[in-house]
Design a binder for these strands. Structure first.
Lengths: 381, 381
DNA sequence: CTGAAAGCGCTTACAG
DNA sequence: CTGAAAGCGCTTACAG
């Protein structure tokens, strides 16, 4: 039996030097004195291999520290086992929390996740749709910001793709999200229930209509209308990016109004945390002077000071459903019309609306559809 | 010239049905009436192609919507253009901020990043060292938690790997980090300078010695010793995981001491934010009653209430150096001894030590080595 | 400037 | 139960 150091060095066989790739099936087969097929059988745990042969092959695999070449395997199998998660920026807490779950769920299903950061820029998002990293990934989970309906319709690439978060994709592609309008309505209604009447909104977005910001704004309108309160355009603040800084800026402007708000509904938690920062800088009390509600329920919402009332979408459900949809396209090649799925959400009330030292309360649960159910998870134990 | 729909359907040529892979170079060559080599030349922008031929090929590429098969290209080239970033959990703010930068820098250098989450568990970390996803990635950037020196020495896999964050890797592998001992010393000295004398530490870790926690604790000891203050073991709180919850718990225990601390140095920002949450719940004022310093300078530190004084490592520098080190191993096959690089860090003092409404100040900058330089970035504009 | 052919490492009918 | 051979799609010396 040849020793491992007698295996020809591939560097010599190739014209050009190349990083040594490790042992191949052929090397192992040679060392074990069997055919490549048999080694492959052992590696892939196929039956029909004599125990003795198996042992011999195992030893050879060990000795050569064999590692299958995934590029070759993928080429042969026509798939890579890789999916892309395309998000604006991975360090937005909402996206990093979602990414953790997507990576976890994908791992359970045998997939590896690579991350694409679009920065929420339309041209980078178009690249995602056009098939960035062609045939490197079997599928894509995509959380767009600026992508519009036209962009989706123009798409030529046929890599399976599931959309996340956006509101109206009009059944062009598989999509999983939450009922943004309803969630926003629930959030604003909570403020109304607490007696607030001058309720501001932070996070309206200029331009494109097919967007999260638009839907949440609609929910805001509907809640106020239901309560018979007129819309004051001065109370609606824009935010091109949903980050702390923009929330702080927007709040500052709202405080300059001659009749400033007594509550503010922010279209995500980062905006809300920025807004709170401004309120505190101005010496105002939250929620006594201004109550604040956020959206996303990132972990920080449970620890900020004050803790933040927020709409809490079921993120694990988002990850699971997105992955299931994607797998059914990737593996089963499903060609049914695009599916639209909505996940559960809750409104979790905390100090920023209930007051200091209040217990955390689940004020609304889309799963239960009954209000004021008190989950009584005593805050901080 | 044959039309695209005359290209044989591969499904028929293969025994088993398989997801249609799109057009290959061969298909394009056939359609354009040239050889595969010529198409390859066009695709890869090689010179020596007649303008006319190039046009013809371009048109064929367009018509068939050709996308190179990266598995095949990688197989042929012996590399994948993929690197793995292995971190405990992507949604720890420090790691998501780092990931954003690594993905950005990698992209600039032509690499795609896939994420491995180890959960900080030793067996999962061992898998990373052993070559999880064999030959799928050209290199690995690895931020270990429980990996010890023995694990590094045992490693058989030869995929280029750069370690992040850990303190003492004893030159076994390339490593980039900061001077943890010194940074911790700077942090504690800051508290001493403010007149604090009962300074607690949160984040000591049981077990393994080669760990961040150990080094930061040493810096804490050294600072106290320099100031002639004895060590009180009661003031040293453990934290198995560096998360908000553990910080809150640890702080609670410290407050139960008959002689509670007047300051606390937390080994990362999340611990500090958890600690602050507890302090506020107990009706204590930060920093008047207890001053708090964190470590990492995650973005939340600039917006928390109070804003958080923290050690700020140069994360972009970490990402850039790690990527450079990795590339020199991957592309140049450098076989020089492992390198050890330390990046700059600063101590940025904010409200949690300076008091409410104080300006943010750079109290220490390892690059300048001069104290009390006032950067005067007026907080909140 | 272009073409024919080999080979990267794998899996899989097809024989035996 | 095992082997010989084809082919996934690409790149690259080697000819011409």
């Amino acid at each position: 039996m040849p020793r491992s150091d007698q295996i020809d060095d591939k560097q010599n066989k190739l014209g050009k030097a190349r990083r040594f790739q490790g042992a191949s099936l052929r090397d192992v087969a040679k060392l074990a004195g069997v055919s490549v097929k048999t080694v492959s059988n052992v590696v892939n745990n196929y039956p029909h291999v004599t125990e003795e042969t198996r042992m011999r092959v195992q030893r050879a695999l060990e000795e050569l520290n064999y590692r299958p070449n995934l590029s070759a395997r993928n080429l042969r199998n026509g798939k890579s086992g890789l999916i892309a998660l395309a998000v604006p920026e991975i360090d937005f807490p909402y996206f990093s929390e979602l990414a953790r779950l997507v990576i976890k769920v994908a791992g359970e299903r045998g997939y590896t996740v690579l991350i694409d950061q679009t920065g929420g820029a339309r041209d980078r998002e178009k690249l995602v749709l056009a098939g960035i990293r062609p045939q490197m990934v079997d599928g894509i989970i995509f959380s767009p910001i600026e992508t519009g309906k036209e962009d989706l319709l123009e798409r030529r690439d046929d890599t399976p793709l599931v959309l996340l978060g956006e509101g109206a994709t009009d059944g062009i592609l598989d999509h999983v999200g939450i009922d943004n309008v309803k969630a926003a309505r629930v959030a604003v209604r909570h403020l109304l229930d607490l007696g607030r009447r001058r309720i501001a909104a932070i996070g309206a977005q200029p331009g494109v209509v097919v967007q999260t910001g638009h839907l949440r704004l609609r929910g805001y309108y509907e809640a106020l209308q239901e309560a018979g309160i007129g819309i004051d355009q001065d109370l609606i603040a824009r935010a091109p990016v949903y980050h702390r800084h923009e929330g702080a800026e927007a709040m500052r402007k709202l405080l300059e109004l001659k009749d400033p708000p007594d509550a503010v509904f922010c279209f995500n938690d980062l905006l809300a945390l920025g807004a709170i920062r401004t309120l505190i800088n101005f010496g105002l009390r939250v929620p006594e002077d201004v109550a604040v509600v956020g959206f996303d329920d990132i972990e920080e919402a449970s620890y900020s000071n004050p803790t933040l009332t927020s709409i809490s979408p079921n993120k694990e459900q988002i990850a699971r459903i997105a992955m299931s949809m994607l797998i059914s396209r990737m593996e089963e090649g499903t060609t049914t019309p695009p599916r639209e799925e909505q996940v559960d959400f809750r409104l979790i009330a905390r100090e920023s609306t209930l007051g200091v030292r209040c217990q955390e309360q689940v004020v609304y649960d889309s799963l239960q559809e009954d209000k004021a159910r008190n989950n009584s998870a005593l805050m901080e134990g």
